[in-house]
Design a protein around this nucleic acid. Structure first.
Lengths: 217, 217
DNA sequence: GGAGAACCGTAACGTACGGTACGGGACTCC
DNA sequence: GGAGTCCCGTACCGTACGTTACGGTTCTCC
């Protein structure tokens, strides 16, 4: 009811960040059984403080999701001086980064919570996760794709469609399998190989210097 | 503790199936708030009967997942007399069917429940969903792909890898967006178009009569 | 050094819900 | 027509957990 200014601004104190880290840790380890009591115990703070800072349980979860999202933002891929090798490398890095994110235990736990919440109505955790995950990466990658097109390296009509194809080539069944509890531990080598393969496939489909990319029936 | 023989065999009476349909309906409409009391009220049966038939809440959910899975199994795509057009049509049908499944409100609700359960330990709903979804479709599609290879229409080393690429091209970001609460209502026309595009892309990557499918760096 | 704020630890409250018990009605079998 | 079975409706129980309240400690500011 009466959130502090800091919460509204997204400015968190060190102590508050430590609390949210404890929430993340509990999400990963305990999964579902994330109670306010367990958070308070783990973070060595009182429940009264939790309610004072975050309003209620949903507010705590939302703050946690935002806190984690604020850390995921990686370096921006500048797109001047673009040649084929650099573009390919950028896409491969994107793919590898994304695979690392979705296969991390933190992301899995967070997405599970958000999906569980999407079933109910209240406090749009799913929207926050989407905005900072799928859509954020789309907005960062599309300029790269368009720069590639401007440089005559890529060939597509709609950047959104091209991005979604790349997204599918990279992620395949990984995320849904992990969310549903499938093991599938991806090593760093697996991720590099998958990222390379997805990038190769993407260039095979959208590379400007390749064959006409789709045969029209 | 003492499930009836019918439950173990997966043989369900008409009444029991009606109860599970009520569970599905409640999952779709109420999402998270699926209580034993609400199921009993909706299905017009007593809670005592629910516990007698399904053991406990998890048993009820597991039976519901299995019941829905038993209905999803579609026709088998026979793979003799294979020519290019028929193979392409089979893949496109697969893609369209899969897109219809994952964008159905029933599938979304069921996957959300299973993912929520995967966070906890108990009763492997996620495993059941995976076995009847992702893995079942893989086992049905891979023979088609291998028949296509045997007929000289496709070119790949590993059927699993080829299938996973197809899976990614078809699903892209659709399922995760829907699970996280994004709107994205797919019309039948959208599904047909996406299925066609995914199939075209797949043939561009794995078609035997196309260019060498991947440039090795 | 005294007032007040911030916060920890814990106890207490209210409720929602999983699970159980019980009475009563409908049907079957003898 | 009486015993047994199945099942509906409902009341009940126990507990887990979100939320609130409160005493005690530390720190800041004057």
């Amino acid at each position: 009811m009466t959130p502090t200014k800091k919460d509204q601004d997204g400015e968190l104190t060190t102590r508050q960040r430590a609390v949210l880290d404890a929430v993340l840790e509990l999400m990963v380890r305990e999964g579902d059984q994330l109670t306010m009591t367990s958070v308070a115990k783990r973070a060595s703070c009182s429940k009264e403080t939790l309610y004072k800072w975050f309003g209620d349980r949903d507010g705590l979860l939302a703050a946690t999701v935002r806190w984690q999202a604020s850390r995921v933002r990686a370096g921006s891929y500048d797109s001047q001086r673009l040649d084929a090798a650099l573009l390919r490398e950028s896409l491969k890095d994107f793919a590898a980064t994304w695979l690392e994110v979705i296969s991390s235990s933190t992301s899995i736990a967070l997405n599970r919570v958000a999906i569980g919440h999407a079933a109910s109505r209240k406090s749009n955790l799913g929207g926050i996760v989407l905005a900072n995950g799928r859509f954020a990466i789309g907005e960062r990658l599309k300029p790269v794709l368009e720069a590639g097109r401007a440089a005559g390296l890529l060939n597509f009509d709609d950047a959104e469609t091209a991005f979604r194809t790349f997204f599918g080539l990279v992620g395949r069944d990984v995320q849904i399998r992990l969310l549903l509890g499938d093991k599938l531990d991806m090593t760093a080598a697996d991720i590099q190989r998958d990222a390379t393969r997805a990038t190769d496939h993407f260039f095979a489909l959208y590379g400007a210097n390749s064959e006409p990319r789709i045969r029209i029936l």
